[in-house]
């Protein structure tokens, strides 16, 4: 494998009782790039993410992260190695405040997590950094609001802040902008531009303007298989893509 590849999947396959949701997918993600995974609903994008992050067991195939085979590791282990995902449905700790949500992620890096004998005040040292991250995604005014009470778009922003707290080498974002208003989308796009420095991002996104603007490379998935891969210009000229995916979209 090339030195520039940070994440590589070979022959990735997932069957749900005979139904192949992901079928022999090869994927190489270049270090430092923003790589988009697109395709119609049900194409298997989320399942791919679940496989890459070990949230689902593979039926077949292998996954290399920095050259290391991670296809037998636990999901949490993969996350600790620096391959961190977000979820398609917003996923926060609803009962905790924004600051606390981010602090939980900071704590994961601190190696203090099995400490049951000292006060949680020991973690207060993380608070300035947590506040910084909350501010960075524009949630400063909501810092002490319970995540469960945030409007949808804000939850997505909080998720990004939480994921960022881990300083992951590779971030997997599953439709980070789904269901957002236009103004919010611009904000998240700007945010992603800002946080991409020094890391790799693999994202699922339906909004093709966003995909065109952000991604260096695009993989199109249909019915669990890779249809085509390339730059935005390359794939948008591809007849099968136009037919299978972009037909109904004003691209």
């Amino acid at each position: 494998m090339s030195a520039g590849i940070v994440l590589q999947a070979k022959g990735l396959t997932k069957e749900f009782r005979g139904f192949k949701a992901v079928d022999d997918v090869d994927l190489s993600v270049e270090r430092g790039s923003i790589h988009a995974l697109i395709g119609p609903n049900g194409a298997g994008k989320t399942t791919c993410f679940n496989l890459l992050t070990r949230f689902l067991p593979l039926t077949r195939g292998s996954i290399l992260f920095n050259g290391r085979d991670i296809s037998a590791l636990s999901a949490a282990h993969v996350a600790r190695l620096g391959l961190v995902r977000s979820f398609q449905i917003s996923s926060t700790f609803p009962q905790l405040s924004c600051i606390e949500n981010v602090a939980i992620a900071l704590q994961a890096r601190g190696g203090n997590s099995f400490n049951f004998w000292s006060s949680e005040r020991r973690l207060d040292g993380d608070l300035p950094r947590a506040r910084e991250l909350v501010d960075m995604v524009g949630l400063g005014a909501f810092a002490d609001v319970a995540a469960g009470d945030l409007p949808y778009g804000r939850k997505r922003a909080l998720e990004i802040a939480t994921t960022l707290a881990l300083e992951p080498e590779v971030m997997l974002l599953d439709e980070p902008m789904a269901g957002m208003a236009h103004g919010d989308i611009d904000q998240i796009v700007a945010l992603i531009q800002k946080i991409r420095v020094g890391r790799t991002i693999l994202m699922v996104e339906h909004n093709l303007h966003v995909v065109a603007e952000l991604s260096d490379r695009i993989t199109v998935l249909t019915r669990g298989q890779v249809l085509v891969e390339g730059s935005y210009q390359e794939i948008s000229r591809h007849p099968a893509v136009i037919e299978a995916y972009m037909g109904g979209v004003d691209a």
Binding site: A76, P94, Q95, S113, N115
Partner: peptide, 23 residues
């Protein structure tokens, strides 16, 4: 305790806690 914090995260949203690296 710090451990209790993780527990509340795991109880509140286990998949998310796992995705942050908590077993």
């Amino acid at each position: 305790s710090p451990f209790g914090r993780v527990l509340s995260a795991v109880k509140g949203n286990e998949p998310r806690a796992v995705s942050l690296g908590y077993e």
